[in-house]
Design a protein around this nucleic acid. Structure first.
Lengths: 122, 122, 122, 122
DNA sequence: GTGGTCTAGACCACT
DNA sequence: GTGGTCTAGACCACC
């Protein structure tokens, strides 16, 4: 696991887990690894994982059975909403940023396309 | 002026100024307000504005005439590059984020379009 | 049965049983279900029920006949004391909390009344 | 400062601060002591205070000016809501608990009155 | 100076 | 074994 420097590690790990859920790599109601196991795997301090678990639960992404473990929400709706919100955030930031630079819809499409093409070649 | 909590204030102000230059609200070679004036207008700590000016100069966006003031670069090319770099940053972040959520090119376009339509209505 | 996260599950179950006794839903001297049966019914870890039984016995609410089972105390006085203690706890917490928020006796009565009225309507 | 054992220290400190605001001991918009100063005064680890500040901000009770300090909300409405919510919590718990023990409105009033009289004497 | 994050290690209650 | 809390001490970015 490599963490970039900009965002706090606990946020990056939260996003990792959320994306795994969204992409179906983890199933609804499934038990997560224990915080200690995650900490070992990701080479991170156990307290950092505790924080990740707390925040995920606060967001309704997971829930805790005390003394048993932490589980992914069983609500498919919640996952859908989560995906939608994460996408909307990204889209809003993108549009806002581009419009502030004076780009219009067609410019945006063109830039995305050219960037994707470039990546495809590599 | 209100600043959000996600990015450092000095970065947000830098972007403000850069966007004004890119959009032609400020002209090449034009003199900027003094950092103190900016600090007053934006209700920001003077040291924060000093940092803004330093960083802008380091990036080549502005230059200083000692005892006279700080001026916007006179290089049109520099402004073009700046615009391109800012756009590329935004585009890269967008694509990366959307792909991690499992969206493809067509999804991206659709989401941008629907968001722009929604804003147009309002 | 769902348990909230604020209090330990074993405490919540203890209170359940105590209230059943106080309200006469369970009779003095009556035999309780076995801890295993309780555990199944409440979907709770068997060890948790063992703890419930231990604590109840420690408090004198129940007693055990070895090889036979666990029984509710036969002392009516014990039940009365129990009820009184539980009520006093609740009353003390209430008064303490309300006074710390700056409410006086009349405020307390008014708030209780308004809350009861609201529930009665629903 | 003495902390009882039941609730986490950070919660107890949060409530301390909230009550000071509600009772007008601290004014709207006022700067709080720094987390380090609080930590010294309350003989608590600085990280514990950081957590207190985080949670208070999350609840909207305070806000942070980065690099400057933490301030009490300027919204009188927020304080009113906070007081109301804290009171409602206490009242709800009280009523629920008493009704589960089989007490009615008049019982509740009588018990509160007798308890207050007892305290007044002491 | 301010708050925010992270590591390290300990202790605890609950299951 | 599980998560939750707390202490201790360090480092960092920001103002």
């Amino acid at each position: 696991m490599n963490f970039d420097n900009t965002a706090p590690i606990y946020i990056q790990i939260m996003n990792l887990i959320k994306k795994d859920i969204i992409l179906g790599k983890m199933n609804l109601g499934e038990k997560l690894l224990s915080s200690r196991e995650y900490a070992q795997n990701l080479k991170v301090n156990p307290n950092t994982m505790v924080r990740v678990f707390n925040e995920l639960e606060r967001e309704g992404v997971t829930f805790t059975k005390r003394g048993v473990g932490t589980f992914i929400t069983e609500s498919e709706e919640k996952v859908e909403i989560m995906k939608k919100e994460m996408a909307e955030d990204i889209v809003r930031n993108f549009i806002e940023g581009m419009m502030e630079l004076g780009f219009n819809f067609n410019d945006m499409i063109a830039l995305i396309k050219s960037r994707l093409d470039k990546e495809a070649v590599q």
